[in-house]
Amino acid sequence: MVALTVNGTRHEPTSPDDTPLLSVLRGPLGLSGPRFGCGLGMCGACLVLVDGRPMTSCDTPLWSVDGTAVTTVEGLATDGAPHPLQQAFLDEQAAQCGYCTSGILIRAAALLDENPNPDEDAVVAALDENLCRCGVQRRVVRAVLRAAAGGQR
């Protein structure tokens, strides 16, 4: 039996051990933030933090996250207040369709945890595995830099 913590709550999902983590999150756990984009770990729409590290949940089997703490985009907010990145994405209107946004937010949150003051190149490098088809990449970079600067620009 696999046990894991998701956004602060402990779960013991009954899904088979080799079920993709994404299916568990979006299925029995009832979350919607992690998105299915490709199923191959190639687009980043399904990213979640596993013990603080971004991982593509679509190709991560449930057994491999036994005993870990998983954070999805729903878990970025604290006490109902949006994460500074979420606020910055709204301030910069850094989305069009918003389907890739969850995964980008997760990757950016991991970046800011590791490097609270990244420059533009560091943000671009961190997000290079995340795909966006609507073409809002420059807005996203601005939003991440804004969040890093404490919401100021």
Binding site: L31, S32, G33, P34, R35, F36, T72, V73, E74, A77, P82, Q86, F89, L90, Q93, A95, C97, G98, Y99, T101, S102, L105
Partner: peptide, 17 residues
Amino acid sequence: ARLDLPDKVTGRPRFVH
């Protein structure tokens, strides 16, 4: 500001998926 973006940056159900 876009009406649909608050749901999309917080991961609330919004898409047909």
